[in-house]
Amino acid sequence: MRPFTYTKTEDTAQATSKLAANENAKYLAGGTNLLDLMKEDVERPDELVDIGLLDLTDIKETSTGVSLGAMAKNTETANHPLVRKNFPMLSLAILAGASGQIRNMATNGGNPNQRTRCAYFFDTAMPCNKREPGTGCGALEGQNHMHAIFGWNENCVAVHPSDMCIALAALDATVTIADGNGKTRTIPFTEYHRLPGDQPERDNNLERGELITSIEIPKNNFAKNSYYVKVRDRSSYAFALISVGAGLELQGKTIKNARIAMGGVAHKPWRAYEAEQFLKGKEATEENFEAAADAEMANAKTLEHNAFKVPLGKQAMVRALNVALSGEKV
């Protein structure tokens, strides 16, 4: 870990201006990913601005839905009555991630900014365009069973690791961002993260100095019929091979609306628009769920070690939809 100066602030504007002033500065929130990466010498800030004391911890009802403060911990969020009742898929997704200890530390604002778990990104001896642009992608022709099947290119095949963000993408959340000039902007959660394109070093569309202050989830009618399924290499405390967040809004047996997002498949939370489109207006049956999943997986492009993600992705999506339909898990 490189030397850095440590400061803390209770003022959002001061925090953002510090980051705006120093391109090598980073925010320190829960620290669960940043300190890990600093010890690996992947993240190399020379200044940490501790924002753990910012007054952004509220989880509250708004006129349009629920607002999650950026500094509220993942644990509080998953267990907040507003979240549990209205967005159980989000509670489940958060609880599927990491461990109790880490969820007690990790914040809502930090979670979307966690970086990929790709081993080539973590290992400074390896090529990685995300860590060191221009060095190549180590995983493309390396060990890539954890890697992407959607939206990747030869620059980067890494996947986004968060569970929480999969649910937020499915739930049409928006992100409120403060900049260094006292201004805020709001962007749809599905547009917060990026595909690798020709800038794989950029995980998201946050500009220098900007800070997530809250995440808003609009009211919806998916609560009763939603689920988050996660498949991993051990039963807990592991990153997803595939995860699927699914919500159904039903009118009798007919699907009025479906919301589906997948984790472990792309450089960003992968909203399964093809599957959603297919299901809209159709009857909620296993056959239709399978056809919807096939429609989504048709665009998959696999690597040497991750072909299994196509059948697994399909079956996980069907499972998520089936459980959501049953209404049993939530």
């Binding site: 440590y6 300190l35 890990d36 501790d50 200890q101 530390m105």
Partner: peptide
Amino acid sequence: RVLSCLTLAAS
């Protein structure tokens, strides 16, 4: 419960 390895003493 938290992880002390990912907590800076300074914080």
